[in-house]
């Protein structure tokens, strides 16, 4: 029998703390597989955010940092400037990247920082219990938009991929989703492309990944995956927005 699918050693043998059906675990596996496939485990480091993935430093079998909320791109910059021949990724949620850390991600892109950002967009704050995020959709109910996000009150969600694609320092910007097998395959391919962009030293790379949050969306894991297609993808179109 030949092995078709087996856990990569880059993903540590530690049970994940994520909720059943959460997208984080899927992306953790993809990033770990890409690191293994590109053969860069011994020259790679990662930066975990503050958010549901705050424990990611326990899950990747590489050197890891835990960054303050929103500051992962700055931490990664510090690492990369000290070890320009090593590789580093930041793993961030939408609160971390698109809210408190907006300046850091925008300026990392502007500097053309040769780092890779894995950006999980689940349209909500997960760890703190379901508050509205900058990516929360108009009309979407959360614990801090109980009547549904009102765009006249607090605007419409941020489209980070499109925004960062306008920056010259960005070399590869794509948005993917986890809701179907084809999209899962494309997501991993995009993550691999992002790391290859970094390895080639072309500049800043980011993959925005639409990811389910069953617990805080109040949906079953399957319903959450469907909601990505029904509600998120129409507002957050998938595709490659920048490729150098």
């Amino acid at each position: 029998m030949t092995v078709v699918f087996k856990k990569t050693p880059v993903l540590r043998d530690v049970p994940l703390h994520y909720c059943p059906g959460c997208g984080h675990g899927i992306v953790h596996r993809m990033v770990s597989e890409v690191i293994e496939e590109l053969g860069i485990q011994d020259k790679c480091a990662g930066v975990a955010p503050v958010g549901c993935a705050v424990f990611a430093y326990n899950y990747f079998e590489v050197d890891m940092y835990e960054a303050a909320h929103g500051r992962a791109p700055a931490v990664a910059t510090g690492f990369k400037r000290v070890h320009p021949d090593h590789y580093i990724f930041t793993y961030q949620g939408d609160g971390d990247l698109a809210s408190i850390g907006t300046a850091e991600i925008v300026h990392a892109a502007h500097r053309g920082e040769k780092i890779t950002t894995i950006f999980i967009n689940n349209a909500i704050y997960g760890m703190t219990g379901g508050q509205m995020a900058p990516t929360t959709l108009v009309g979407q109910k959360t614990t801090t938009s109980p009547l549904g996000r009102d765009k006249d009150h607090c605007g419409e969600p941020i489209r980070m991929a499109e925004m960062l694609a306008t920056i010259n320092g960005s070399a590869f910007i794509a948005r993917c989703a986890l809701n179907s097998t084809p999209n899962l395959i494309k997501t991993k391919a995009a993550i691999k492309k992002a790391f290859e962009t970094q390895i080639a030293g072309k500049g800043f790379s980011m993959v925005e990944i639409l990811s389910p949050c069953p617990t805080n969306w109040g949906k079953s894991p399957a319903e959450a995956m469907d909601w990505i297609a029904d509600a998120m993808i129409p507002y957050y179109p998938l595709g490659t927005f920048k490729e150098v």
Partner: peptide, 19 residues
Amino acid sequence: IACAACARTCPDTAIEIEK
């Protein structure tokens, strides 16, 4: 059919496929 669609979507990498 060993397409591994299940393993790809598993959030906890709890599925192994052999052919």
